[in-house]
């Protein structure tokens, strides 16, 4: 059932994380693990890509890794 997933991959959830602190794509994927959202790996990648394209966050390099972030 849908209620089995305790985490939802939504634009609002991603936005809240990126306002809090800069994150890499890997950081974000850890927040929306497939076992918690009930989505497949492909769905997770596709949905997260669409959300990030829409949010169009700022980017900066931290420790040689690309991080995304948003300001309010």
């Amino acid at each position: 059932t849908p209620s089995a997933s305790d985490v939802q991959l939504t634009e609002e959830a991603v936005r809240r994380y990126l306002i809090r602190k800069p994150m890499t794509t890997k950081d974000l994927l850890k927040k929306f693990q497939t076992k918690r959202t009930g989505l497949s790996s492909d769905q997770t990648v596709n949905v997260l890509a669409q959300i990030l394209k829409k949010l169009n966050p700022e980017r900066k390099n931290i420790n040689d890794k690309m991080h995304f972030y948003l300001t309010e």
Binding site: L29, S41, N46, A49, L52, K53, N56
Partner: peptide, 20 residues
Amino acid sequence: SSSEADEMAAALDAELNSFM
């Protein structure tokens, strides 16, 4: 597994890099 996470991150990075 961590390798699956790496593959997902690589796929996502590639998708975003082709866009931005």
